[in-house]
Design a protein around this nucleic acid. Structure first.
Lengths: 334, 334
DNA sequence: TCCAAATATGTAATCGATTACATGTTATTA
DNA sequence: TAATAACATGTAATCGATTACATATTTGGA
């Protein structure tokens, strides 16, 4: 393997000069530079990245931590991250926690061991104290979920409360008064925000908040299915359901169909996320489309600033999302 | 940051001994070992991975190259890879080619620059000569797709021909005689195998192979949709369609519905892959389930053997897949 | 008890790029 | 022309773990 000293020897310069040609070309005389570049090409010299990383104590690699890449929502964010990362020569390492605390801690260790220059979290479900500590010492950005203590680390997300409010309001405007909610796990800030938005919409329109109309799911298809079965068993079942994810909405629709209840004729069901399959689903889901790609891009770009040592304020950056009105809410406007 | 020499000093030994405690503990006297381990714990010493990588000229990192992580098929394989990789301390780097030759070459460069110890390809759509060359020099494993020149690099896949044969035969046994095929891009070995299986099934059952019954898609929903429209426009349209992917099958179903043709009543449609939504789709897709997780695991384990320098024969390893008979083929056996 | 073999540990070179600092060279100005 | 600034290049230390080789210590056998 050709190394820098080989290039230096053949070009009759020092390794320092070769290095400068590569790092700060403007500090090298044109003539020398040309000579060195020629030799580099001739010997097909490639710098040893491992040596470079070691010397610089950086890896040009970032870690993305998420529950599982199987969830298409995360894949979409990752594509945005990857897009931005590639532009500036960063590599992206995958960290599936599989909801396992132990795995998550192992991943965080990569940061401590300087195996990666920074970390993007696609969910905040880690030990809170640990996270706060970590984010003080290393470059970390949070996407899509929030942290209890705001302003601890930069966060990219959408305004879950507002969007949840909007989609609930949409149902109200369609005439629904008995609206249920299938929430995500309430230890997630995101889930609570979506719940709040739903509740606020009801209150603002003078509708009662029925305790029985709140079902707690976990964003999975199955939990949507089960929750819907419970809702339909109520003495006075809802005529509309706001699910906190498309997967749960799909589960709910399937449950309704199973019981012979038609969507949207008998009951309106809306979701959240706008995953790939939502428009193919029958009925096509009315939902809130998140700008996943943009979120990923933005997160990566903030992370890079952090890594570069720029002063970052730990603001929450809210990106714009879009209400997608399709069939599952009834009154398809298409 | 504590370094090895700090530990050595405090433990009153040389760095060589500290290193040995970590690398080859059995060569160090019990007493010394204990002393060193104590100091390591006391100082919370973590070896500098960058220095180690540099010295060893390895990264404990592997690269997964695929068209796009958005495709759930790839995510599933990756989970298998990641599972196996994590077990032995490997990291997984994502390489989305986005179907862009340039990006693909950039990724391969990571191998050449020793930024990764090995590479797993989730598709063979790269420059063939380059690939053959690369695979001679570096550790590379191919998953799911095949290479023209067999036995160039280890390959993990399913028997596409056989499975395509089986699912086609299933339609024949249901009484269909006019069966069309929507293939993948025919520059992929995988696509050609699925086509061959379909053709062989027809021939073995003395059915004619109509040229008009072959539509070329690209595995996408849209191409399935478009292909189906063409098929329905034929003078004598097929009564069954074998699509080479579930996405295309879904596209085909949607196209059929759009034209008022019922599935499976008027026409049977089957797919390939068994992606997450295939069972939620209406009608639920009859399809071939691939053991993605296992494929990923196996690929990673072979790759590790290669990296470790073991002699690998470039066999094709075929894993077992399963015919999932659901609604879209009619005669639901459930 | 003595010596060879087996163990245990230390010394110092090494991996290859980077960079602070020193030195050398050219351009600029009075 | 001399003095200084500006530019160009070289020297050599550095990053921190690993390991070949050298040296020291212990063990076991005769």
């Amino acid at each position: 393997m050709t190394k820098m000293s080989d290039v230096a020897k053949l070009a009759q310069v020092s390794t320092a000069t070769v290095s400068r040609v590569l790092q700060k070309p403007e500090t090298v005389k044109e003539e020398t530079k040309q000579k060195v570049l020629e030799v580099i090409k001739k010997l097909d010299y490639q710098p040893n990245i491992l040596a470079r990383n070691f010397r610089r104590l950086e890896t040009k690699t970032i870690l993305v931590v998420m529950p599982s890449i199987l969830n298409n929502v995360f894949s979409q964010i990752i594509v945005g991250i990857d897009y931005e990362a590639t532009k500036s020569g960063y590599q992206v390492i995958l960290g599936n926690t599989m909801q396992d605390e132990q795995r998550a801690l192992g991943l965080i260790n990569h940061l401590k061991q300087k195996q990666v220059d920074g970390m993007i979290l696609l969910t905040a479900r880690l030990d809170m104290n640990e996270l706060v500590k970590i984010s003080k010492e290393y470059s970390v950005v949070l996407v899509s979920d929030f942290l209890e203590n705001k302003n601890v680390l930069p966060t990219i997300a959408i305004d879950n409360m507002k969007e949840s409010y909007r989609i609930t309001e949409h149902l109200i405007k369609l005439g629904h008064t008995k609206i249920a909610h299938i929430s995500g796990p309430l230890d997630m800030s995101m889930s609570r925000d979506r719940l709040s938005g739903y509740q606020k919409a009801l209150m603002d329109h003078n509708l009662p908040i029925e305790y029985g109309y709140l079902e707690k799911g976990d964003y999975s298809f199955q939990s949507g299915y089960d929750s819907m079965l419970s809702l339909m068993d109520l003495k006075c079942p809802p005529t509309a359901v706001v699910a906190a994810s498309d997967r749960m909405a799909m589960g709910a629709v399937k449950a309704a169909k199973k019981k012979g209840v038609q969507v949207p004729n008998h009951i309106a069901i809306v979701g959240f996320d706008d995953i790939e399959f939502s428009k193919l689903f029958e009925p096509a889901l009315t939902t809130v489309a998140q700008p996943f790609f943009e979120m990923g891009k933005k997160a990566m770009s903030i992370l890079q600033q952090q890594i570069a040592g720029e002063q970052i304020n730990n603001d929450i950056i809210l990106l714009k999302s879009e209400l997608k009105i399709r069939e599952s809410c009834g009154f398809n406007l298409k």
